[in-house]
Computed example of a mutant assay.
Amino acid sequence: MVDKQKKIETGLLIAWAIALIATLGSLYFSEIRMYIPCELCWIQRIFMYPLAITLAIASVKKDSIQVIYTLPLSLIGMGFSAYHYMLEKIPALSTRAEACGIIPCNYEYINWFGFITIPFLALIAFSAISFIMIWILKVSKE
Rank of each mutant, 00 (worst) to 15 (best):
M1R: 14
M1P: 04
D3L: 05
D3T: 12
D3W: 12
D3E: 12
K4M: 05
K4Q: 07
Q5T: 15
K6W: 04
K7G: 10
I8M: 07
I8G: 12
E9D: 11
E9I: 05
E9F: 12
E9R: 13
G11Q: 07
L13Q: 13
I14M: 03
I18A: 07
I18Q: 03
I18R: 02
A19G: 03
L20Q: 00
I21R: 11
I21E: 11
A22G: 09
L24E: 06
L24V: 09
L24N: 02
L24A: 15
G25I: 03
G25R: 11
S26A: 10
S26G: 12
S26M: 08
L27F: 15
L27D: 14
I32S: 09
M34C: 08
Y35I: 14
Y35G: 08
I36K: 14
P37M: 15
C38Q: 11
L40K: 06
C41E: 09
Q44S: 02
Q44W: 00
R45S: 12
R45I: 00
R45G: 14
I46M: 13
M48G: 03
M48A: 07
Y49F: 10
P50V: 07
P50T: 05
L51S: 10
A52F: 08
I53H: 00
I53G: 12
T54M: 14
T54S: 13
A56W: 05
A58G: 08
S59C: 13
V60G: 04
D63Y: 09
S64H: 13
V67L: 02
I68V: 07
Y69I: 13
Y69F: 14
L71R: 08
L71K: 00
L73M: 11
S74H: 00
S74I: 05
I76V: 12
G77V: 03
M78A: 13
F80G: 01
F80A: 04
F80H: 01
H84C: 08
M86S: 13
K89S: 14
P91I: 03
P91F: 06
P91E: 14
S94G: 12
S94D: 06
S94H: 13
T95S: 14
A97F: 02
A97S: 14
E98L: 14
E98C: 10
A99E: 11
C100D: 07
I103A: 10
C105A: 11
N106I: 02
N106V: 04
E108A: 14
Y109T: 03
N111I: 00
W112D: 03
F113N: 07
F113K: 13
F113T: 08
G114F: 02
F115W: 07
I116L: 11
T117C: 01
I118W: 03
P119D: 09
F120T: 01
F120A: 07
F120R: 01
A122Y: 10
L123A: 05
I124E: 02
I124D: 02
I124A: 10
F126S: 04
S127W: 01
A128Q: 00
I129M: 01
S130H: 02
S130R: 04
F131N: 00
I132E: 08
M133N: 11
M133G: 04
I134K: 03
I134Q: 01
I136L: 04
I136M: 08
I136P: 09
I136W: 06
I136S: 06
L137R: 06
V139M: 10
V139H: 12
K141G: 09
K141L: 12
E142G: 15
